[in-house]
Simulated scan of single mutants.
Amino acid sequence: MRAMPKSDRYKILGSCVTPRPIAWITSLSDHGIVNAAPYSFFNMMGDDPLTIAVGLMAHDKGRLKDTAANIVASGEFVVNLVDVAHGETMNLTCIDAPPEVSEAELAGLTMAPSVMVKPPRIATAPASFECRSLHEIATGQNQVVIIAEVLYGHLVDAFITDAERLYVDAPAMNLLGRMHGSGWYSLQTDLFQITRPKWKETHESAAGR
């Protein structure tokens, strides 16, 4: 892999590691500019504390991307999830705008104040999670992985089927996943369930044969 051009390495891994959830990150610059950009090198990493990880690649101009620069400077950001209804708007925020331009404003996003961090959240997203950085790991020149704690969550009431038991209707959110190749996405359809085995039950069943 090291002998290959980075674009080819990206194609191979990006085509195989799918689908990937999308973190539509909102962050705040030192000058108060709200940045919004989607990242699919993203996932949940632990529950005590509740942690996520986001991989932020280098800007093609040889610097940190605006999102990475904002997070490194402030340690705060919001992960907004992307549903089908926001697909085109999310794609607009991929634009290579200069740092002084707010993608949130450019895309006409409706923003709402966060509770525990300064960057605002996308008010119309099906779910948003306010985060504070725990570790910033440099994985290359101007390339960084952010490990962060989730401090506060916002979920649209319509997707909560049982508030007491914290049941969330995930399929109803129609979340997008990132797929292979340029511009390819997927929906969470064709679902099936496989129950996780338990050693005691499996062992007793085998012994009773």
Score class of each variant (00 low, 15 high):
Val144Tyr: 01
Ala138Ile: 10
Pro126Lys: 02
His59Ile: 01
Ile52Cys: 10
Lys61Thr: 02
Asp60Gly: 03
Leu134Glu: 13
Val84Ala: 14
Ser74Glu: 03
Phe77Ala: 11
Ala73Trp: 01
Ile71Asp: 14
Ala85Met: 05
Glu130His: 08
Glu103Trp: 14
Ile137Gly: 04
Asp83His: 09
Glu136Asn: 15
Val72Pro: 00
Thr51Gly: 04
Phe77Lys: 10
Val144Phe: 00
Ala69His: 01
Val82Cys: 00
Pro98Cys: 01
Asn91Asp: 09
Val145Ile: 15
Pro119Lys: 02
His86Thr: 05
Ala73Arg: 03
Val79Cys: 09
Ala127Phe: 09
Ile137Cys: 12
Gly87Tyr: 12
Ile146Asp: 03
Val54Asn: 00
Cys131Val: 01
Arg132His: 05
Glu103Lys: 09
Glu88Ser: 06
Arg132Phe: 04
Met57Val: 04
Asp48Thr: 10
Gly87Ile: 06
Met111Glu: 07
Asn91His: 11
Asn80Pro: 13
Ala125Val: 06
Ala125Asn: 10
Ala73Asn: 12
Ala123Phe: 13
His59Leu: 03
Thr110Ser: 11
Glu105Pro: 13
Gly140Asp: 01
Ser74Gly: 14
Leu56Gly: 11
Asn80Leu: 02
Met90Thr: 07
Ile146Ala: 05
Gly75Val: 05
Asp83Gly: 09
Glu136Ser: 09
Ala123Leu: 04
Arg63Asn: 07
Leu109Arg: 12
Gly140Cys: 01
Ala53Ile: 09
Gly87Ala: 14
Leu64Phe: 10
Leu106Glu: 07
Leu50Asn: 15
Gly46Pro: 09
Ala112Met: 07
Glu88Met: 03
Ala138Ser: 14
Met111Gln: 04
Pro120Asn: 12
Gln141Thr: 15
Ile71His: 04
Asp66Cys: 08
Asp60Tyr: 00
Asp60Lys: 04
Pro119Asn: 00
Gln143Glu: 10
Ile122Gly: 10
Asp96Pro: 01
Phe129Leu: 13
Met90Phe: 05
Leu56Asp: 13
Ile122Asn: 12
Ala123Ser: 05
Leu106Ser: 08
Arg63Ile: 11
Gly46Phe: 12
Asp60Gln: 08
Thr124Ala: 07
Ser74Phe: 03
Asp66Leu: 06
Glu105Arg: 14
Ala73Cys: 02
Pro126Ser: 08
Pro49Ser: 08
Asp47His: 13
Ala69Ile: 04
Val117Tyr: 10
Leu64Pro: 02
Asp47Lys: 13
Leu50Gln: 08
Val84Cys: 15
Lys118Asn: 15
Ala85Phe: 01
Ile95Gly: 00
Lys61Arg: 08
Arg132Tyr: 14
Thr67Glu: 06
Lys118Ser: 15
Asn80Lys: 12
Pro113Asp: 15
